[in-house]
Simulated scan of single mutants.
Amino acid sequence: MASNETATRTLIATARLNRPAARRIYWAIVIVVVIVFSLAFLGPLYWMVTGGLKSAHEIAQIPPTLFPKHPGLENYSDAWAQLSLGRLILNTLYYALGALAFQLVLDIGAAFAFSKLRPLFGNIVLGMMLATLMIPSTVLIIPQYVTVIDLPIFHWHMLDSPWAIWLPAVTNAFNIFLLKRFFDSIPSDLLAAAAIDGAGPLRQLWSIILPMSRPIIGVISIFSVTAVWKDFLWPLLVEPSPENRTVNVGLYAFSQGITQNVLVAGAVIAALPTIAFFLVFQRNIMSGLTTGSLKG
């Protein structure tokens, strides 16, 4: 009996929730909290979508209108044509998927080594990598830019090339740490049984670790793609040519010559690929929330 009560215990006792007055107060608080957070997250998105349907005069009106008076889709077609969004989105998609591919290969390999192979001084190296998370990203802009201009040892000049975005994206200590913590939760007995059957480390990684790690790989994929997609300062520095611009840099470059409603419509179009990417991996992320909660 006591275990059942403990299992269902919440912040508010069940006996109090059974009272009509307490139940009304409880649900009123829940509804208010849900509405406030929904407005905080969906409000800017709603303004952006409806702003792309307004005229140039209406979008600059103060106070702003809640609904477009004469909604139309011509702003979106104008934004696609005037901003060259097709090329900008393809450039950004190329950079984002390339960074994702390098991160999945190198970060998964590093996390597997730290978690299961346990190299000499592995914990010290991992600690030094995690220490870099304490350094503000803006502090690293200058040394990274100097490195991109003249890569040490090889002396490669990587400005206006995708490598200027791909290589810095690979050095992500946070993703390596997330992958390592997930790999730590996979029983080592499975790898030992595979080793008895003759499977080497690469075979164990491919046949055992990766199939069980789809939830965390989905999370890492979203982090990687959105980090490149929303970045502005670094692509502005390392991709100065107009034909190599990312979508954010392109929107900024053309922002002075077009009306605000067309620019907002362009921002909506630029956000659609990341939303679609999230929806593709949503199932893996939701399944990751319950990973390890079932007892066999």
Rank of each mutant, 00 (worst) to 15 (best):
M1S: 15
S3H: 13
T6H: 13
A7H: 09
T8C: 14
R9K: 12
T10Q: 13
L17F: 07
L17H: 06
N18Q: 15
R23I: 08
R23M: 06
Y26E: 10
I29H: 12
I29Q: 12
V30T: 13
V32R: 12
V32H: 11
F37W: 09
F37K: 05
A40D: 06
G43T: 07
W47K: 09
T50I: 05
G52L: 07
L53E: 02
S55G: 08
H57P: 07
E58H: 12
I62R: 15
I62V: 13
I62Q: 13
K69R: 06
K69L: 15
G72P: 04
L73D: 10
L73Y: 05
Y76W: 07
Y76D: 10
D78Y: 06
D78T: 14
Q82N: 13
S84Q: 15
L88R: 10
T92D: 12
L97V: 15
L97C: 15
A101G: 09
Q103A: 14
L104V: 08
V105P: 10
D107M: 09
G109V: 06
A110S: 03
S115A: 01
S115I: 04
L117C: 05
R118T: 05
G122S: 00
G122Y: 00
N123G: 11
L126T: 14
G127Y: 00
M128S: 15
L130F: 09
M134R: 06
I135M: 11
I142C: 08
Q144K: 11
I149R: 14
D150F: 06
I153W: 05
F154H: 08
I165M: 12
P168Q: 02
A169Y: 06
K180D: 06
R181P: 10
R181Y: 11
F182N: 04
F183C: 02
F183V: 01
I186M: 02
S188C: 03
D189C: 01
A192K: 09
A194F: 03
G198N: 04
G198S: 02
A199I: 00
G200Q: 01
P201N: 12
R203P: 02
I209Y: 00
I209L: 01
I209C: 02
P211E: 04
M212F: 04
S213P: 02
R214L: 15
I216W: 00
V219N: 03
F223P: 03
V225E: 01
T226D: 12
V228K: 00
W229V: 06
L233R: 10
P235W: 08
V238F: 07
V238P: 05
S241H: 13
S241D: 11
S241T: 14
N244I: 08
T246L: 08
A253R: 07
S255M: 04
Q256I: 09
L263D: 09
V264C: 12
G266Q: 03
I269S: 06
I269W: 04
L279V: 14
Q282L: 11
S287W: 07
G288W: 01
L289C: 10
L289P: 04
G292T: 10
